[in-house]
Design a protein around this nucleic acid. Structure first.
Length: 587
RNA sequence: CGGGCUGUAGCGCAGCUUGGUAGCGCGCUUGUCUGGGGGACAAGAGGUCGUGGGUUCAAAUCCCGCCAGCCCGACCA
């Protein structure tokens, strides 16, 4: 039994000044965590209980899907991460340290290498597969900007698991088993989630999905369809397939457009000097050609021009995700100087493309469909061309998803409008494939005695981040309100009497009886603390069921308060145990 | 890494403009009263004023560097 009189906790009346988001504010105020280091938090008794309950649910579901728990050191030698190049690749986000002999170590940001080598160490036959291993461990990442309390720390608790299969079908099965387990975990945690398609990016795998808790303070932007169940990370959104434009258009014509380096100035100029008969010119009539520079992993660079409708912005991160592992940046002045064929502000597709005069690679956003007509640069300063038709007057080297996704864009599956939302990444499932197994030499003998490279999946859940996410979802102005499954205790008994009086005695008796039924009990037995203080504390701490033993005892009643519903019910003290136990058992 | 704001007692803040005794509220200790919504009165404890340097007879206060925090962006998953 936890007693408020001795529990190591101090609730704060005021919000801490450095906490902005609700989870951070309330977890500190209610005495669950304390900041101990930049991006690092101490877990106090109440917080530690919640964290362990979340961990227990994760562990339970991982075990029942057949994964086996192991535990690696957090401090790892450099050479293992040299094997995959990640000692360098991870850059500043990696915590590095030296031992007394000057040897390099790191604090593990994630453990693909260790798991892969462990399986390589022990297994060598297809008969051993499939196998899934996991650990729940403190991870270290030297984040550029830790923020929002537990939501992005530099030290955090993560469950990471890895599956090992002989073939793609096996990987798909392992992936789905993890995905299903994750759904059960987040359901048990009462954490709302959206599964979004994600980019596999530089990791080189295929399928990749993120579990996002749709919460405004989250750092991830995703889209979801207002009608069907499509959702995706903004980088991974695909454009709805559009049919070619079959209308016929006037012959392309170059017009002088002095002082029109921007889309807005161009549209204004055209409406003033080359008005259309049917309607006014719009930004969406123009084709904007964005000049980028790709930096390939070998250090070489390449100029790339991407064509997008003039009313849309090019999304560099989205483009980058598709050309990964190359990096993308806008072409700088020096770059333009090397390409005199590119007239800034007046670039048109006529001089672009692998077989063109400039030889610069040219890709179009899919919204620039075949057969559509455009106003675009004439490749002469101060001139644009009207009625330039894709496919008739110019061709590109291909397409690339390039525009910044906007609310209202059509859903790629059902064409209804998409909406944009924010979320916290609480889980990630990822078909890694053979990248690590190849690099680290993890292969097994198959039925025919042939070496086969193992295919892997990696799957993560941010355990400490889940605690914060739950606090984000379940709170109000008064404080936290935990879901029953992870509440630090089952019931919070508030005793408003004075030491030794009937109320105190009744409260202690009730607490003992509830504990005898197997419930976890917190009793506020503080003497000389006014009822108002105890009520405020109870609301702040947020145990879902609060029992008040106080003045209504005179009528033979206790008060049963539901922190979530905000209700307060008088219950005869004789029925109290049975009522509370029933509440807790039904979950 | 860039921009903005901020570091004074466990928490929230004032003092800084105009240099000269370290201050308020909450919390904490002791006592009395009080006892259903962060109660009252009285007496206390608690401070390298983020840090290093400079200016000055004298620095929380003025100047410079650094560190840390929050927010926005970049980055990350």
């Amino acid at each position: 039994m936890l007693r408020s009189s001795t529990l190591f906790v101090r609730t704060l009346r005021d919000d801490p000044a450095d906490a902005e988001v609700p989870s951070h504010r309330l977890l500190v105020r209610a005495g669950y965590i304390r900041r101990a280091a930049p991006g690092g938090y101490t877990w106090l008794p109440l917080g530690w209980r919640v964290l362990r309950k979340v961990e227990a649910i994760v562990r339970d579901e991982m075990d029942s899907m057949g994964a086996q728990e192991v535990h690696f050191p957090a401090m790892l030698p450099r050479d293992i991460y040299e094997l995959t190049g990640r000692w360098d690749e991870y850059g500043d986000n990696l915590f590095r340290l030296k031992d007394r002999k000057g040897a390099d170590f790191l604090l593990g940001p994630t453990h693909e290498e260790m798991f892969t080598l462990l399986v390589k160490d022990l297994y060598s036959s297809y008969k051993d597969l499939p196998v899934s291993l996991y650990q729940i461990q403190t991870k270290y990442r030297d984040e550029a900007r830790p923020r929002a309390g537990l939501l992005r720390g530099r030290e955090f608790l993560m469950k990471d698991s890895y599956s090992f299969d002989i073939d793609d079908a096996g990987l798909a099965a392992s992936y789905n088993a993890h995905r299903d387990a994750y759904e059960r975990i987040f359901t048990r945690l009462k954490l709302p989630y959206v599964i979004v398609k994600a980019m596999s990016g530089a990791m080189g795998g295929s399928a990749s999905e993120e579990f996002l808790a749709p919460i405004e303070v989250g750092e991830d932007t995703f889209v979801r369809c207002t009608k069907c169940d499509y959702s995706a990370n903004t980088e991974a959104v695909t454009t709805a397939a559009l049919s070619p434009d079959t209308a016929s258009y006037a012959t392309a014509a170059v017009v002088e457009t002095p002082n029109c380096p921007t889309i807005a100035s161009l549209v204004d100029f055209l409406n003033a000097n080359h008005a259309r008969s049917d309607r006014a010119w719009k930004a969406s009539d123009t084709l904007k050609n964005v000049v980028l520079q790709l930096r390939h992993p070998d250090g070489s660079t390449e100029v790339l021009v991407v064509g997008v409708p003039g009313d849309r912005e090019a999304d560099i991160k989205r483009i980058e995700a598709q050309v990964s592992p190359s990096e993308v940046e806008p072409l700088d002045d020096a770059g333009f100087a090397k390409h005199p064929g590119l007239i800034r502000g007046y670039i048109g597709p006529q001089v672009l493309g692998a077989t063109s005069a400039t030889g610069v690679r040219y890709l179009l956003d899919p919204s620039v469909v075949t057969g559509s007509e455009w106003v675009t640069g004439a490749n002469v300063a101060g001139s644009h061309v009207l009625h330039l038709v894709n496919g008739r007057d110019f061709t590109a080297d291909g397409t690339i998803e390039a525009v910044e996704v906007a609310a209202g864009d059509p859903c790629p599956t059902c064409r209804e409008p998409l909406e944009i939302a924010r979320g916290i990444e609480i889980g990630h499932v990822f078909q890694l494939g053979r990248k690590y197994a190849d690099t680290l030499g993890l292969s097994v003998l198959d039925q025919n005695g042939k070496q086969v490279v193992v295919t892997m999946g990696s799957y993560g859940i941010g355990v400490s981040r889940a605690v914060a996410s739950i606090a984000e979802v379940f709170h109000d102005d008064l404080g936290l309100k935990w879901p029953r499954a992870i509440s630090p205790v089952d019931v919070h008994i508030v005793v408003t009497g004075k030491n030794g009086d009937d109320i105190t005695i009744a409260g202690e008796k009730l607490a003992a009886e509830l504990e005898a039924q197997g419930l976890e009990v917190l009793i506020d037995d503080r003497n000389g603390v006014s009822p108002g203080v105890k009520f405020k504390d109870a609301e702040l701490i947020g145990i879902p069921t609060i029992v008040v033993v106080g003045k209504s005892l005179a009528e033979g009643n206790i008060e049963l308060r539901d922190r979530h519903a905000g209700t307060n019910e008088a219950v005869p003290i004789a029925d109290a145990v049975q009522r509370v136990v029933a509440l807790v058992r039904e979950g």
